[in-house]
Design a protein around this nucleic acid. Structure first.
Length: 308
DNA sequence: GTCCTGCCTTAT
DNA sequence: ATAAGGCAGGAC
């Protein structure tokens, strides 16, 4: 049974869920590996890690975690150096730079107050905020990662400053962040959107809004939204194809979806509340927009079908 | 594609 | 304590 790597929450497996063993974790889609602590690759990043007390340099403060990388061990003892270019370690570095959320799973560690008594418990999403080499007393260097729980009260910059001396362990005063928000399982019929359509639109327009030319910059890089001209949902049932899609910023996406903006046959963009032309839809040679969908959108919001 | 290594396990 | 164990990832 293949494992699908998912970043972030996994449907049906909320924070606090308990699992009997590593095979069950894998079957749930929470962690790929049956033994290794890090589920991830250099290319994709790391989606989950397990804390089972296998590395003595780990520290679990609850919302803050110092996690040791993989490698260099034989029969549970450190016998060699570790490297950030190795497997899961490289995956955690990737996750840090791409701001990917990492699922924390805790195994039964007798001396940890955050660990379950037995089995494994999913402990929520964390962000990798820093990494460094620690030189142990025995001379071996190990990879270390600093993780902070997403939504916790800890400020990332403050936490990084708490670990200035990276070869020594420190005392961290932890406090409760309160119980996580209640989860309710739901079942819906969700429209499946084609990734290729989204990718093409984003690539062609380089994430630049076709109306206002804005590019939204996030830590993971430039971002845009793929808007459908004739909506996909009932009763419109538009097609999920490039000719029915636009590359928009979140603001213009919302305006367009609610009829605050519409587009003329000559691609002029009109503010429907002020009745003013605010610009012209930027086009790209490979992105063939079907004028019928533009007309459908106008027709939907303005029954005359023409310009109001 | 094949082969090899090592794994924060698990059951005996 | 220890042997068995499957598989992902990496090398080729």
């Amino acid at each position: 049974m293949a494992y699908t790597r998912t970043f972030g929450e996994v449907y049906g497996h909320p924070e606090g869920s308990w699992y009997h063993n590593r095979d069950d974790l894998r079957a749930a889609g929470l962690h790929a590996e049956r033994q290794a602590g890090i589920s991830g690759t250099q290319r994709e990043g790391t989606d989950a890690i397990v804390l089972s007390g296998g590395y003595e340099d780990d520290k679990d403060y609850g919302d803050i975690i110092v996690y040791t990388g993989q490698g260099g061990q034989k029969e549970g003892k450190q016998v060699d150096h570790q490297s950030f270019s190795y497997r899961g370690n490289a995956g955690l570095v990737k996750s840090q730079y791409a701001s990917l959320p990492v699922r924390i799973i805790r195994g039964a560690v007798p001396k940890s107050e955050h660990a379950p008594a037995k089995g494994y418990r999913y402990g929520g999403l964390y962000r990798v905020v820093s990494h460094w080499y620690k030189v142990r007393d025995d001379g071996f260097q190990v990879c270390q990662f600093l993780l902070v729980k997403i939504g916790s009260f800890f400020d990332t910059e403050d936490v990084i400053k708490m670990f200035p001396e990276r070869n020594n362990d420190i005392e961290v005063e932890t406090f409760s962040s309160g119980p996580p928000a209640q989860r309710v399982p739901t079942a819906v019929n969700k429209i499946q959107r084609r990734a290729t359509v989204r990718n093409n639109i984003k690539t062609w327009h380089e994430n630049q809004c076709q109306i206002c030319n804005t590019i939204i910059e996030l830590p993971i890089g430039p971002t845009s939204e793929t808007a459908h001209i004739r909506p996909l949902g009932t009763p419109h049932n538009g097609p999920d194809e490039e000719p029915n899609a636009l590359c928009l910023c979140p603001n213009d996406h919302l305006r367009f979806d609610h009829g605050a903006l519409y587009i003329r046959d000559n691609f002029e963009v009109v503010d429907s509340m002020w009745k003013t032309t605010i610009g012209s839809l930027r086009v790209h040679q490979q992105h063939r927009i079907n004028i019928d969908y533009i007309r459908y959108h106008r027709n939907h919001w303005f029954s005359s079908g023409g310009v109001p």
